[in-house]
């Protein structure tokens, strides 16, 4: 390895920062447009008789439910990932269960600390490695094998999968969220608010059914905020 003058090193790092910022952003914008393009095509040219009211009501209900998560997650992962890897991570997805473990393993195996230049470079390479494995396994096992599987499995089985996969996912996700968050108060408040909305508010005002989850989310945030433990370290 040739030794670099400090000025040369700074210039090289600035160049790296420029490249990854520009191309990271451009590729992410491309990913954003292509990923929305598919369903947009279906809605506009699929001849499915979808009205814009139906479309925007659905989008508004989803926005109302998840807006906090969208705002908070990128800010939470920034210190671990570093700026360049942010553009990778939020396009590849499955950050906490796949990318972060890969990053940590890579940083450990070359003895690089997170937040340093070495750590950031190790993170970027680890995410590239993880992406390669992930894309390959998705393409082979879901794209090819899965599509074949769904065509040979009896209709009775796919019908059951279609009807019950939502409660199956949610049952597991609720337990996972409760255990990994380890926040008893917000958990209890969430249960109370949800039960109140589902079994008291909705029977009274059935028209709210389409925004019931958004109401529960906003209600829980407000109550959990005012009922938070003040004993925690002061800000």
């Amino acid at each position: 390895m040739t030794t670099l003058s400090p000025a040369q090193a700074t210039a090289d790092l600035a160049e790296f920062d420029r490249t990854t910022s520009r191309w990271g952003r451009l590729t992410m914008i491309a990913g954003l447009i292509i990923s929305v393009g598919g369903p947009l095509y279906l809605v506009l040219f699929g001849n499915l008789g979808i009205t814009s009211t139906q479309l925007w009501t659905a989008v508004a209900a989803v926005l109302g439910t998840f807006f906090v998560i969208w705002l908070v997650e990128p800010i939470t992962y920034f210190p671990i990932l570093g700026p360049a890897a942010m553009y990778q991570a939020f396009m590849i997805g499955n950050i906490s269960n796949k990318l972060l473990p890969s990053v940590l393993v890579a940083q450990t195996s070359i003895g690089a600390r997170p937040g340093t230049e070495r750590g950031n470079f190790a993170a970027i390479m680890a995410i590239c490695g993880a992406a390669a494995v992930h894309l390959l396994s998705l393409l082979v096992f879901v794209g090819i094998l899965g599509t074949w599987l769904i065509s040979v499995v009896p209709a009775g089985v796919t019908d059951v999968a279609r009807i019950y996969v939502l409660p199956a996912v949610m049952g597991a996700v609720i337990v996972q969220a409760i255990i990994s968050m380890k926040q008893l108060r917000p958990t209890l408040i969430a249960f109370a608010v949800v039960l109140l909305v589902q079994f008291v508010l909705l029977p009274l005002v059935p028209g709210l059914a389409m925004v019931s989850t958004a109401i529960s989310v906003i209600g829980t945030i407000i109550i959990a905020w005012f009922a938070r433990k003040e004993a925690q370290p002061a800000a």
């Binding site: 390895m1 040739t2 670099l4 040369q8 090193a9 700074t10 210039a11 090289d12 790092l13 160049e15 790296f16 499955n94 269960n97 796949k98 990318l99 473990p101 890969s102 990053v103 393993v105 890579a106 940083q107 195996s109 070359i110 690089a112 230049e117 070495r118 950031n120 470079f121 190790a122 993170a123 390479m125 680890a126 995410i127 590239c128 490695g129 993880a130 992406a131 390669a132 494995v133 992930h134 396994s137 998705l138």
Partner: peptide, 28 residues
Amino acid sequence: KAAPAAGITGAELKTSFRSGAVAAIGPS
């Protein structure tokens, strides 16, 4: 290209890629 400036060797970049890939097999 910028590896020497970041104090990381080419071999270490490869190791990082490989260990990231291996660690992702199970989760993937």
